[in-house]
Simulated assay, not measured.
Amino acid sequence: MTEIDELQRRITAAFDRIGQGVHMLDAAPAADALPEGALAKAEADVLRMELQAALAHSEALQDKLDGVQDKLAKAEPEISSTLVAELEEQIAKLKEANAELMAANEAMRGAESGVTIEQMDQGVVAELAALRAERAAEATEMKALLALVEGANRVASEEEST
Rank of each mutant, 00 (worst) to 15 (best):
P29S: 04
E106K: 05
S80Y: 10
G19F: 01
F15H: 14
M120E: 03
M24Y: 08
F15N: 15
A73D: 11
D121R: 14
H23I: 06
D63I: 02
V124R: 05
M102H: 04
A27D: 13
G21Y: 07
I4L: 13
D45A: 15
D16R: 07
K95S: 09
E134C: 12
G19A: 07
S58F: 03
A97C: 10
L87Q: 06
Q8E: 10
M1S: 09
L39R: 15
P77L: 00
A27Y: 02
E100C: 01
A130I: 09
Q90H: 08
A33I: 05
E106Y: 06
L34W: 01
A139T: 06
V124L: 11
M142R: 12
A44R: 14
S58C: 04
Q62A: 13
A40M: 13
E150Q: 14
A152S: 07
Q122E: 09
A13E: 03
V46E: 05
L146C: 06
A126N: 03
I4C: 05
D121F: 13
A53Q: 10
Q90K: 09
N98Q: 06
A42L: 14
E159V: 15
E100W: 01
L7T: 04
D5L: 12
L101N: 09
K93N: 03
T82D: 15
E100R: 13
A107S: 12
V84P: 09
Q20R: 13
A14E: 02
V124P: 05
L94M: 15
V22Q: 04
L146W: 06
R9P: 00
G114P: 01
E89R: 15
A75F: 08
D16V: 02
A104F: 01
A107W: 01
A75C: 13
A30M: 11
V149G: 02
P35V: 12
V155Y: 03
Q62T: 12
S113W: 03
H57F: 02
E50T: 04
L51W: 03
R9Y: 00
K143A: 14
R48H: 11
A111H: 10
E141F: 00
G21H: 11
A42S: 14
N98T: 08
V155A: 14
N98K: 05
A75M: 03
I18S: 03
E138P: 02
I11E: 12
L145S: 11
M49Y: 02
S80C: 05
A13I: 00
A73L: 15
S157Y: 01
N105A: 11
E138S: 06
N105L: 07
G123A: 11
L61P: 05
A111Q: 09
E86G: 10
A85L: 14
V155G: 00
E100N: 08
D45P: 02
R17H: 10
L7Q: 12
L34R: 12
G37L: 13
G123H: 13
E36D: 12
E106I: 05
E118D: 11
A107E: 10
Q62W: 01
S157I: 03
E127I: 05
V155M: 06
V124T: 10
R132W: 09
A104T: 02
G110H: 06
D45M: 15
R10F: 01
S81W: 03
A56V: 00
A111P: 01
K143R: 14
V115C: 07
E50Q: 06
A60S: 06
P77F: 00
L25K: 12
K71M: 14
L83G: 08
I11K: 02
P77K: 02
V84D: 07
Q20K: 08
R48W: 05
E89M: 15
